[in-house]
């Protein structure tokens, strides 16, 4: 029983990682990873919405008519996103300001809707919780890794603390849009390489 839950949890971390394997949820991945703080906040916000909507949907799946399930899922997700947005605005106004548009856009993150359709609408609640935690964590660690690389190379700091000394000439391109595309491309290529060596 516990072992099965652990398999569900582990799934999202590596084998079916939403970003590097399934390549979904790209917009926030690219847009908010200019600093580690933003990347971490986005990861936590997305994981929270994923977890709460998976709990609700897996619990009430038998009451949701099959024909209107997608609109119902989107409505449930949108409710939790509104909640998250107001929470961040009230308690972490700085983070809410720097993530701005990308908090409401969690509604259309394919990762969240995809997990409801593929997992939560077919499995019991406890398995859905394990899946949401795994997927959320898998999404968050890639965001944090990517934003750490970009912040370190682009500004010479991590979490706003200067790591590389004054000798380092920051590569500003890394925190601009072009750097986001290129560093994610290299990261996915690197993961492909590691996976092939693993096999």
């Amino acid at each position: 029983m516990l072992k099965k839950l652990f398999v569900d949890f582990k799934n999202g971390l590596w084998r079916e990682n939403p970003i590097i394997v399934l390549v979904i949820g790209m917009c926030p991945t690219l847009a908010v990873t200019n600093t580690v703080e933003n990347g971490l906040a986005m990861g936590i916000a997305t994981s929270f919405v994923l977890l709460s909507s998976e709990i609700v949907i897996s619990t009430f799946k038998n009451y949701i008519p099959n024909n209107v399930r997608i609109p119902s899922f989107i409505l449930i997700i949108a409710t939790f996103v509104t909640f998250t947005d107001y929470f961040l605005k009230a308690f972490f106004p700085d983070i809410a300001a720097s993530l701005s548009l990308f908090i409401p856009l969690i509604v259309v993150n394919c990762l969240i809707l995809g997990r409801q359709e593929a997992f939560a609408s077919k499995n019991p609640t406890h398995r859905a919780i394990a899946d949401a935690l795994g997927m959320g964590l898998g999404f968050t660690w890639v965001l944090v890794l990517l934003s750490a690389v970009r912040e370190l190379l682009g500004m010479g700091s991590i979490f706003g603390i200067e790591i590389l000394g004054s000798w380092y000439q920051p590569m500003v391109i890394m925190v601009l849009p072009a750097g986001a595309f290129i560093s994610l491309g290299i990261l996915v290529g690197l993961m492909n390489y590691l996976k092939r060596r693993g096999n």
């Binding site: 595309f181 491309g185 092939r196």
Partner: peptide, 23 residues
């Protein structure tokens, strides 16, 4: 294209170069 960069990675790198051009 090198084998490990085929598909998504090379597309993302291309997009990065396009973003640079649009700058």
């Amino acid at each position: 294209v090198p084998e490990v960069l085929k598909g998504v990675p090379i597309t993302l790198i291309l997009a990065g170069l396009m973003a640079m051009a649009f700058m």
